[in-house]
Amino acid sequence: MSKVFEVKARRRDRVGKSSSRKARAEGWVPAELYGFDIQENHHLLLPRREVEPLLRGDSWSTQVLSISMEGEGEPLMALIKEVQRHPLTGELLHLDLYHLVRGHLVTVEVPVHLVGKEICPGLKLGGVLEQFLHEIEVECDPRLIPDEIKVDISKLGIEDVVYVKDLELPEGVKATEEPDAVVLVIAAPRVEEEAAPAAAAVSAAEVPTVAEQKREARASKEEE
């Protein structure tokens, strides 16, 4: 299960570009909290120093936040659904948060983590790892969201394939992807493609150039 991170937030009194810029300058990140049980989105401000570390790596989409606001009772549980950054500077601009309700299933993309690459027989024989799915969409209770989905490739040979239906998921977690969708394959080494240029080079070396053909023709006439 994903770890729950506690974050202290405050409500936004004003919305708009100017107020958002001011909030970011003061160290806050504007955020929208929404969910099936929320009629009107909550406009929030989250401290950047607490949020930024959670966005490092590939597993931020599985991070569960416990958002507390002073004087408002129990914390709100939420998932980070979207992260907006400045395209040039990378500055964190905005977050979309989805409100979690215990007992209500949620859909989330969980990163795939490969184990056993260093001892994979297929790779040792020159096979090529081709991974088609780097995240798997799953459905589960918010309390059961996994940090990652491990795929053991330590025994895979050349041309072995791992499908979504082959994944070992925790109890209570169901993949929503097509069961026959390919996660990865150990493809055969491209020996023929590499050998073809070499063969072409040998054939070219065996064919005399135009200059060589002319010299041979002159030598033949002189002998006559």
Results as ranks from 00 to 15, higher is better:
residue 169 L to H: 07
residue 2 S to E: 10
residue 45 L to H: 02
residue 220 S to W: 12
residue 65 L to E: 05
residue 198 A to F: 14
residue 198 A to M: 10
residue 155 K to D: 15
residue 72 E to K: 06
residue 21 R to L: 07
residue 29 V to P: 00
residue 175 A to D: 13
residue 216 E to N: 09
residue 221 K to H: 10
residue 155 K to Q: 14
residue 83 V to I: 15
residue 189 P to C: 07
residue 10 R to A: 05
residue 39 Q to N: 11
residue 17 K to G: 03
residue 14 R to H: 13
residue 190 R to D: 15
residue 170 P to S: 07
residue 149 I to M: 05
residue 155 K to H: 13
residue 192 E to Q: 13
residue 95 L to I: 07
residue 162 V to K: 00
residue 86 H to A: 08
residue 34 Y to F: 15
residue 155 K to F: 10
residue 158 I to H: 00
residue 208 P to Q: 06
residue 6 E to M: 06
residue 109 E to P: 06
residue 140 C to F: 06
residue 169 L to E: 09
residue 184 L to N: 02
residue 86 H to E: 15
residue 140 C to S: 10
residue 215 R to P: 03
residue 98 Y to M: 04
residue 116 G to W: 07
residue 61 S to Q: 13
residue 50 E to T: 08
residue 208 P to T: 07
residue 119 I to F: 09
residue 168 E to D: 14
residue 118 E to S: 14
residue 194 E to G: 01
residue 157 G to E: 12
residue 88 L to P: 04
residue 87 P to S: 05
residue 90 G to C: 11
residue 117 K to Q: 15
residue 71 G to C: 06
residue 102 R to M: 09
residue 103 G to A: 07
residue 77 M to H: 12
residue 90 G to W: 14
residue 9 A to P: 04
residue 92 L to H: 05
residue 220 S to F: 14
residue 13 D to L: 11
residue 215 R to V: 13
residue 35 G to S: 10
residue 183 V to N: 01
residue 54 L to A: 04
residue 27 G to L: 09
residue 15 V to A: 11
residue 136 I to T: 04
residue 24 R to F: 10
residue 52 E to L: 13
residue 61 S to W: 01
residue 28 W to C: 01
residue 203 S to C: 04
residue 221 K to D: 13
residue 50 E to D: 15
residue 15 V to H: 03
residue 174 K to N: 10
residue 201 A to I: 14
residue 139 E to A: 10
residue 207 V to N: 05
residue 192 E to V: 15
residue 80 I to C: 02
residue 136 I to K: 00
residue 168 E to H: 12
residue 128 V to F: 13
residue 204 A to F: 08
residue 222 E to F: 08
residue 71 G to L: 05
residue 210 V to S: 09
residue 9 A to H: 04
residue 133 L to S: 04
residue 198 A to W: 11
residue 164 V to E: 08
residue 169 L to W: 10
residue 83 V to E: 03
residue 162 V to A: 01
residue 34 Y to T: 08
residue 4 V to I: 15
residue 173 V to H: 03
residue 134 H to P: 02
residue 159 E to K: 08
residue 52 E to C: 09
residue 12 R to V: 06
residue 198 A to G: 02
residue 31 A to C: 06
residue 223 E to K: 12
residue 64 V to M: 06
residue 61 S to A: 10
residue 41 N to R: 08
residue 183 V to K: 01
residue 189 P to S: 05
residue 149 I to W: 02
residue 51 V to K: 00
residue 184 L to M: 14
residue 217 A to W: 11
residue 127 G to A: 08
residue 56 R to N: 09
residue 106 V to G: 04
residue 134 H to F: 15
residue 115 V to E: 15
residue 61 S to R: 12
residue 30 P to Y: 01
residue 216 E to L: 11
residue 146 P to E: 06
residue 73 G to H: 07
residue 50 E to R: 03
residue 173 V to F: 05
residue 12 R to F: 09
residue 17 K to R: 11
residue 136 I to V: 15
residue 118 E to W: 11
residue 101 V to Q: 07
residue 106 V to E: 05
residue 28 W to I: 02
residue 180 D to C: 02
residue 178 E to G: 02
